[in-house]
Structures are given as C-alpha cells and as structure tokens.
Design a binder for these strands. Structure first.
Lengths: 122, 122
DNA sequence: CGAATTGAATTGCAATTTGCAAGTCAATCT
DNA sequence: AGATTGACTTGCAAATTGCAATTCAATTCG
C-alpha cells in the first residue's frame, strides 16, 4: 500500500459486479469499518481502533486510505488539525447499508449454530 | 488449512453478526464461488475453475472444504466417484442470495466510475 | 512555560495467506 | 493398454497481515 493510493491500485478480476465489489471490499476489515460508521455516523481513528474486533493500527490506516480513495468515506473537517478529524460515510458508503443488513440477517439465522454468542442487530 | 477442517477453525472476532459473517466469508473468493452456484445450480470443480476470475486450484479446494464444513455448500452424489461429483448450495448457502444481490446493485451504481466495463446482472 | 500525554499515524519484522507451477492418482476414453 | 481428463495436493515464492515499537505534532498538566 503506497502513501498515495490511486484508483488504479485495484485489479478488477472481471466485469462481474459481485467480484468487483469484492475486489474493493472483500476482506476482513473494510466492511467492519463501514459498519462502525453506519452505527456511529462519525468516528475518529482511535474510536475505530477501539471496536471489539481489534484491528491493528497499520491495517486501519491502510483501509481508511483506500476507502477514502474510492469515495466510500471522507474526512470531517479535512483542513483542520489531524487530531480532531474523524471519518464519515459518503453517499456511496451509506448505500452499503442494505448489503450489511442482509449479511447481518444471514449470519443471525445461519451462523448461530456455530457461534452461539452472536447477537441480533437487525 | 488442514485436510479435515473443523468448525473450530474459525476464530470469531466478536459477537457482531456482520463481523462474524466476514470471519467466514470475508475474503476474495468465497462469495465468487457462491455466485457461481447461484447462477448455475450445480458446478464441478473444473467448471468453478473456469470462471473468469481465475481462482487457483489450491485456493478453490480449500474454500470448498470450508464452505462444506459450515454447511453452505454440499456435494451432489457424495458417494459416487469424485470425477462426476459437483457442488451445490444448501438452504443456508442459497440464503446468501440477497446479500449478493445487494452487493451487485451497489457495485453497479457506485463502482462504474472506476471500472467502466462492469456489467449489470440485477 | 516546559514536560508529559494523547491521537494519529508509520516502520520493521515475523507469521500467515495467497498464488503459481508442477505433480499425483484414479477413472474414463481410444 | 496407453493416453487423457478431472480432481485434487504439494512445494515454494510473493504478497498480505498483524504485532510491537517508534515518530510526531497538538493538547493538557504542573
């Protein structure tokens, strides 16, 4: 991951919208970050770090950069001091809500037998 | 990945259904395999290999094993000869269709500006 | 006002995962 | 019977992930 990630960084495996969505978001962390921003509106770097899944600092920074590059999240007050900045979903990012809702619904009904502590959020 | 994967192989990062779904399916290949089985009902190993995304043989075998372990796919004619076997979605796997539909819809509307060749499937 | 603290990262390195190429092995065609 | 095909497995290199430590500027504290 470079310091200035470009939109060209992603290799689209095919013209399929499903595989293309996964080319960008198909990893263990991106949608967790987006979940936090759906439930909390805005979150700072350290608030995102404090989520129960324990993302590590370098991975968080890298994902935030990519998500920003692709217009899924944006900084609040981007010209102020870094310390007080936070991230929020763009229109595009907010449009992922139905994807997460469907995933949550599926997990709640089909994963409970393997992971009893799983909770219902939808 | 062991030869006989167990349900214990996955470490659930939290009790959140979204992160838990991603613990199992949050990689670049699982949902691509599931997409193929949604659109084709049953597929053999080599048919899955021939998809345009070009999964490699070891990754495909590993993912099929995990998806089978978690009851998302199953073999057709599991007692026959391996050569003629194929995979198909279980009820649980078929229930992922809305997740993929929502992802496809999102990609079609929000990824086209970065990946012009993306096609509409929903 | 200077020192310690905090928030937002970056860097180095080890461990894990991914991916390519080649090999295995049993079941069919020829 | 020999070659081929389908379904994998194995070995190894490359890329990614994750942990720990470090940096660095902006507050807060004494």
């Amino acid at each position: 991951m470079d310091t200035q990630p470009d939109v060209e960084m992603i290799e689209w495996r095919s013209v399929c919208p499903i595989s293309s969505g996964l080319d960008l978001l198909g990893d263990k962390w991106s949608l967790v970050i987006i979940r936090d921003l759906i439930t909390h509106e805005t979150r700072t770097y350290s608030e995102l770090l404090s989520s129960p899944e324990h993302i590590s600092t370098n991975i968080l920074a890298a994902r935030l950069r990519v998500l920003t590059t692709f217009g899924i999240i944006e900084r609040v007050d981007p010209d102020g001091v870094a310390r007080n900045n936070a991230f929020r979903l763009t229109r595009s990012g907010a449009a992922l809500r139905p994807v997460l809702e469907q995933l949550a619904t599926w997990s709640q009904t089909h994963l409970k037998r393997y992971h009893e502590a799983i909770v219902n959020v939808v």
